[in-house]
Write a protein that binds this DNA or RNA. Structure first.
Lengths: 226, 226
DNA sequence: GTGTGATAGTGTAAAAGTTACAGTAACAAT
DNA sequence: ATTGTTACTGTAACTTTTACACTATCACAC
C-alpha cells in the first residue's frame, strides 16, 4: 500500500495568523511565539496562529489558536489581509488569513507564559515565514484606524485618564500632540465620557477617569465631505 | 478499489471572487455571471471567480478567472475581505478571498459577452452563495475609498471632464455636490491636472479635459491630525 | 505646615478650511 | 440671431484647526 500523501502537500492549506498588539512601558508591543519547523524555520520567532480546520470559521480558528497556545482569551481582533505568496511558507502551500488583535496592558502581563513574548515593534528582527510583512501591514493599519475609529478602546482599561489615552496615540502614531488640542478633539468626537471618578494615590494632582461610550468599534466621521 | 473522495470534500478549498464595478448610464453596475450548481444554486447569478490552485497566488487566480470566463483583461483590482462562513457554499467548505475590481465604461461594453451581465447595483436581487454579502461589503468599501484615495481613476477614461468626475462621485456616494466646491476640493488634492485639451463636437460650451496625475492608487491625506 | 516636584487642567486669537450661493461664457442647432 | 445646454468662476459667513502658557492639586520630604 503506497504511503499516503498528506492533504497539505496536495492542495492549498488555509491558516490564520494574528498580530496581537499591546501598549505598555511606553512602546507598542507585539506578541511573538517560538517557531521550530525544520529545515527552514529553526529557533525563530513568529506570529501566533495555525491551521483553519474544515469545521470552523476564521474567527473560530483565531480564538482556538490564541486560547490554546497562548492562554489568551480576552481579545479584540479583526481581519487584516490574506497573504497568498507562493513562497511564504517554504514547506507547504499555505494561504494565511492575517488578523489584527488588541489587548490591554493588564491582559498582556497575564499572557507572558507558554513561551509567548512581547517584543517592542521597533525591535522586531527577522521572523519566520512572511511574518515581518504581515506585521508591517498591521502596524500601518492600526496607526490609520486610530484616526477614524475608536479602536483604541481595546488597548486601554475600562477607566483611563486623558493623558494615558494621549500617550497611546502618540506611541502608535509616532508623533506628539498638544495636550489642549488633543483633549478638545477627542471630547468633540463623543467617544468617551467622564466617569466622575478620579485617580487616587498619585503624587500629583489626580486626573479624571474617562470611559468609552458604547461597546463596539465604530467609524467616526472625520473625513470632510467633498 | 474504493472511489476516491475529491480533495475539496475533505479540506478547506480556497476560492477567489471579484466584485467588478463600472459606472455608466448614470448608475453603478456590477458584473454578474450565470451560476448553475445543482442542487442548491440553479439558474442564479453570482460573482465571477473560482478556485485558487496550488501553483498560483490570489492575484493570479483572479486574473485567470476574469480573463478566461469573461474575457476581461484590463482591470484594476484589490483584495476586499476573506469570507469563511461555514454555510456560504452549501456543497463544499470554501473560503473565498473576495476582491474589488474596477473597469472603465468602455471596457465594460467590451465585456458584454460570454454570459457576463452588467446589473445596476440597486437592482441586484438574490445571488448565489453569500455573494450579496460580498457585494454589499464592496459597495461600502468603494464609497469609502472615494473619499481618501484616488481609486476613482480606474472608473474613468484617460481624459475626462470635471463634470464626468463629479457624476461618478455622486453616483457612488449617492449624494450631490456643489459644482464649485467639488472643483475646488478636487483640484486642491493635486490628483488631476488639466491636459490643455478640450471636448469637441458637443452642443454646448466644451469642457476642459483632465487627467490623473501619477499612475498608482494612493491615499490622499484628508484626515486632519488630532 | 511649608516647600517641592510632578502631573492635571484650562482659553483664546490667528489661520485655514468648509459651506452656501448665482450669474456669465461658449458651443451646436435651428 | 435666437435658443438650449453645459462650462466655468468668486466671495462672504461659518467652522475647524492650530499655536501657545499659566494655575491647580496632590504626595512627599523636611
Amino acid at each position: 500500500m503506497p504511503k499516503e500523501i498528506p492533504i497539505e502537500y496536495r492542495t492549498v492549506v488555509v491558516a490564520v495568523d494574528v498580530v496581537v498588539f499591546s501598549v505598555f512601558d511606553g512602546a507598542l508591543h507585539v506578541l511573538l511565539i517560538p517557531v521550530n519547523r525544520p529545515p527552514h524555520y529553526v529557533a525563530m520567532r513568529g506570529l501566533p496562529g495555525g491551521i483553519m480546520e474544515k469545521k470552523e470559521t476564521s474567527d473560530e480558528a483565531v480564538l482556538r489558536h490564541l486560547s490554546g497556545k497562548i492562554g489568551l482569551s480576552s481579545i479584540y481582533f479583526e481581519q487584516l489581509y490574506t497573504f497568498t505568496s507562493l513562497g511564504r511558507d517554504k514547506r507547504n502551500r499555505v494561504a494565511s488569513i492575517a488578523h489584527l488583535g488588541l489587548v490591554t496592558a493588564t491582559e498582556a502581563k497575564r499572557v507572558e507564559r507558554e513561551g509567548g513574548v512581547w517584543v517592542p515593534v521597533h525591535e522586531v528582527d527577522k521572523l519566520a515565514f512572511d511574518h515581518n510583512e504581515i506585521l508591517d501591514t498591521a502596524v500601518v493599519r492600526l496607526a490609520g484606524k486610530l484616526l477614524y475609529t475608536n479602536i483604541v478602546r481595546h488597548l486601554l482599561p475600562k477607566k483611563f485618564t486623558l493623558t494615558e489615552l494621549q500617550k497611546v496615540y502618540e506611541i502608535i502614531r509616532n508623533e506628539t500632540f498638544d495636550k489642549r488640542n488633543f483633549r478638545k478633539k477627542i471630547l468633540s468626537m463623543n467617544i468617551i465620557h467622564d466617569t466622575g471618578e478620579m485617580q487616587t494615590g498619585v503624587a500629583n494632582r489626580p486626573a479624571s477617569l474617562y470611559s468609552f461610550t458604547g461597546t463596539k468599534v465604530t467609524e467616526i466621521p472625520l473625513i470632510s465631505v467633498i
